[in-house]
Design a protein around this nucleic acid. Structure first.
Lengths: 198, 198
DNA sequence: GTCTATATCGCGATAGAC
DNA sequence: GTCTATCGCGATATAGAC
């Protein structure tokens, strides 16, 4: 609970404003105003506006954007339980306040920033596909699920997670209840498992 | 092939620029410049910048954003063929140049525009859920697929379509090949059908 | 319906006093 | 490290001549 430095305050205010207005509209003026300092004082902590954004970008992919890779090889043998754990992790991240803000910034700026697009595919998509593919492959070998292409199966699995998260992000932006969507995560695991189990 | 009126040219140029830069950065200056007129001349056709955007918004949901609702009751009896047709339609829209631009504007501005968010849920999501639910329900009644909640099944089905389209939109923005993703549509139908057929 | 010229504003950023 | 003051720019928009 150490008090925030001015630089940390700036980053925090910038995160919030950018996640609500987008980078362009989140002006240095507004950021400084939210922190409670003048614009000129802000330049003692960051050389320019873009530096603040780059600092925030670090957080986006440093955060557990999706899931922590545990020991897949063991857990995959548990079949449906593995998927359930994976989704629980994903769900937690989806509802985490900080992650929500960062996810919104990702969506808001993904067309303005090529690096963001690339890292979306690498860190977000491919990483998840890799973990899931490995797990599904093991499940197939152990005859827990029907034989199929593990990559396709993984793609099908995470696409729904992304869509749920996307909708959650939209609804929460308007402070609309997300209880229905919250249960969609479990429905997804159940439905998906019914379709692949042997 | 009738020549475009100045107003149509403005709308076209604005669409392109907004889909690339976002509303805020697509300045009246740039729009007018692309059309080949001065900014002041533009105001003879639209009262202000927002009017142009509102005009474009009409197109977003007027366009076949998803699919045309045919006679579901008959077609649903065809089982997998129905899904295949549905996805083919979705795929066509995803790769249509005009629809691609409008979809990108939707994604770019969805957090800046509450109406856009609402219509996303209504016109885009709910409409598709409704059509699919009806079809899945009929398939269940006719014992073509396993019994389950039609709404959940529909949600699972379209979430993947959305994710594919999202990725296509990202890749095409960087002029990256989308042949892999293109086949993902068919893989989706095949995989999904395997999981629900009786 | 287009032009030139101009008004007004908010933006990012800097200089220099304290 | 913060302040006041200011600069230069690009934005939306308007007035009025042609």
């Amino acid at each position: 609970m150490s008090p925030l430095s001015t630089k940390e305050k700036i980053k925090l205010a910038a995160k919030k404003l950018i996640s609500e207005l987008g980078y362009k509209s989140a002006s240095v003026r507004k950021i400084a105003s939210d922190v409670g300092i003048r614009e000129s004082a802000l330049y003692n902590h960051y050389t320019n506006k873009e530096e603040i954004f780059l600092d925030i970008l670090q957080d986006i992919f440093a955060s557990p954007f999706s899931t922590s890779t545990q020991n897949v090889k063991e857990d995959a043998l548990k079949g449906k339980l593995f998927l359930h754990r994976f989704v629980t992790q994903y769900k937690l991240v989806s509802f985490d306040k900080e992650s929500e803000i960062l996810f919104r910034i990702l969506l808001l700026e993904i067309f303005s920033n090529k690096g963001l697009r690339e890292r979306f595919f690498e860190d977000f998509h491919n990483k998840n596909i890799k973990v899931l593919s490995e797990a599904f492959f093991i499940m197939m070998q152990n005859n827990l699920i029907r034989s199929s292409d593990p990559m396709t199966m993984s793609y099908e699995f995470i696409s729904t997670l992304f869509y749920i998260r996307f909708q959650i992000t939209l609804l929460r932006f308007d402070s609309i209840s997300t209880t229905n969507l919250s249960t969609q995560f479990e429905k997804h695991v159940d439905f998906f498992w019914e379709g692949i189990k042997v």
